[in-house]
């Protein structure tokens, strides 16, 4: 019944409310952490080449896929539809991208994997997705991806799809906020 008690409780509840508002935002890094640990939508950090044992007993089919966002007037395609490789073996593949417009544009490629958990096992040493790519009007270029499939890839995965989607790079120059923390830009 005491007014003072009410105020104390009010303060506590306001703290809870503000805390939960913060929690909403805390879910962002938390979400990416979970995705990274489970390999879904994994951040596409560059890894340094390590000496890995090539697992010649297994052969994986690696498929390549390319997409362009509806707002980007580029053409983008892998130069090979798929390759077969052993886990641990270093491979390089090429993608080709062409600016169909009459303007210079910077695009950013965002990777994605099927099945999702495979993202954790695709170790990229070099990739055009690490930075934005600027193409002059009408320019066409080939871009390499150099990678190793981690031998820890689960045994029941036989086919992995590596997909990229090129978007217009948002706010080129400004630091991106809110996006996933892992390095891809």
């Amino acid at each position: 019944m005491d007014k003072a008690d009410n105020r104390i409780l009010l303060k506590k509840l306001v703290v809870v409310t503000v805390g939960m508002f913060g929690f909403g935002f805390a879910m962002v890094p938390f979400y990416y952490k979970i995705c990274e640990v489970t390999g879904i939508n994994s951040g596409d950090a560059q890894v340094l080449a390590r000496n890995t044992q090539v697992d010649t007993r297994r052969t994986i089919t690696l498929e390549f896929d390319a997409n362009v966002d509806a707002h980007l007037p580029w053409r983008f395609r892998p130069l090979q539809r798929s390759i077969r490789l052993h886990p641990g073996e270093m491979v390089q593949v090429l993608y080709e991208v062409e600016n169909l417009s009459d303007r210079d544009i910077t695009g950013q490629a965002i990777p994605s994997y099927g099945p999702q958990l495979a993202g954790r096992y695709v170790k990229k040493i070099e990739c055009f997705c690490f930075t934005g790519q600027t193409l002059k009007a009408g320019e066409k270029k080939q871009m390499p991806v150099m990678m190793v499939m981690d031998p820890a890839l689960p045994n029941d995965v036989h086919t992995v799809t590596l997909s990229y989607t090129f978007f217009v790079q948002p706010d080129s120059g400004k630091a991106a906020q809110g996006g996933r923390p892992a390095a891809n830009g």
């Binding site: 509806a70 707002h71 980007l72 007037p73 169909l100 417009s101 009459d102 303007r103 544009i105 217009v168």
Partner: peptide
């Protein structure tokens, strides 16, 4: 191609999609 892909930044978006 101009119709399909538009010009970035211009009011006309790419109609391709």
């Amino acid at each position: 191609r101009a119709v399909l892909n538009g010009r970035p930044g211009a009011a006309v978006a790419a109609f391709g999609g």
